[in-house]
Amino acid sequence: MYTIKQASDLLGIPAVTIRAWETRYGVVSPVRTESGYRMFTEENIEDLRWLKSQIEDQSLNISQAARLLEQRRKKQNDTTDVSESIDDEGEGDGFQVRERMVERLYEALSNYRTDQAKTIVELGFSMFGYDAMLKDVMFPILIRVGDDWENGKATVFQEHYTTQFLVQKCLSFFHIFPTDPELPQVLALCPPGEQHQAGLLMFSLFLRKKGVDVLYLGADTPFEGIDKLIRSQQIRFVCISVSILSCLPQGEAFVEGLLKEFPDIQFALGGSAFEHTSGKYGPWLLSSDTRDWQKWFDDIYLAKA
């Protein structure tokens, strides 16, 4: 605990300024002794130090800094509340905790609560790490919201909002992994009509972690003009994902059309719909098993790179 003089000396803020910040903006609430003297806690000191840095380093005035401090505290409280709500709902192993996080995040996104969703995602990455958060939390939600939309359990707006939020979060990781300029670029897309891109995104991140530069086009990609893109970027590998069976003809047309134009082009074909092609695409067909992905990477991509 610090007296106002000690706080002033420690922080280099005049005592009169500290009093003004307290009374006018309520940025700190020091403890009062029986005699009425202010006593500042470590938390008070940190808040005052943060305010001072915002004013001096960011050129904010005290009212702006005070508003930012309030937002900062709210975010910290939200993180604590979410963490406690996830941890307190009974005992369980790490997977069960992640399942509870899936429910919390899906609920927040379904109700368009962006700030809460961001807090949950940040908490998840700090608790579980990159791989587990993507595999066990974010990708299951991408699949679930698509299924709920198809079954009438989610509106088109909920599906679009949830998908875009999660896709943007995932794409932000593309910039984390460095690319190897010696490795050929890969094109990743879903054919016309196909909106489910969770598997494609996950496979693209798998490639990025290996240093591959992935040109990610995502859902509902038209065929027209794709040949010009492939020529201009010298694309030799194309990843296509089709989950909706009704979109399989478009997926096959994509493959056959590109093979006609580029006989030496190679594919990675994923999604449940491609399972109905009777294996005619052989080693290009990929399951959701990452061991299958590794085999494609070693036997096809690296072998023909």
Rank of each mutant, 00 (worst) to 15 (best):
S172E: 15
S204Y: 07
P184W: 04
G129M: 12
Y130H: 15
T162P: 03
R98I: 06
I230Q: 00
D299L: 09
D88C: 09
V145H: 03
E22C: 06
L269S: 01
V82G: 04
R32V: 04
L48C: 02
I300D: 02
R38A: 04
I300V: 13
R73P: 07
L285W: 09
S110R: 13
W50E: 12
M138A: 06
G218T: 05
Q266D: 01
G279V: 09
Q233D: 00
I230P: 01
S288L: 14
Q96K: 01
Q233W: 05
E182N: 00
P283L: 07
V255H: 03
K228M: 10
D136C: 11
L285R: 11
F139G: 02
V156Y: 08
V167Q: 07
G257C: 06
W296P: 01
L285Y: 06
K228C: 07
G279A: 06
T290C: 08
T114V: 15
S241K: 06
W21K: 01
L205G: 05
Y25C: 08
P30Y: 08
P249H: 06
V97H: 15
P192S: 06
F223Y: 13
I18R: 00
S172P: 10
T163M: 04
L48G: 03
E252I: 14
Q54P: 07
D93R: 11
Y25F: 15
A117S: 15
K210Q: 14
F173A: 06
V121F: 11
D289K: 03
D136H: 15
G36P: 03
A15E: 14
R291M: 10
D213P: 01
L286W: 03
G92I: 09
P192E: 13
D47I: 15
Y106R: 14
P14L: 02
P222N: 03
S243I: 04
M1A: 10
P222S: 04
D299R: 05
E42L: 07
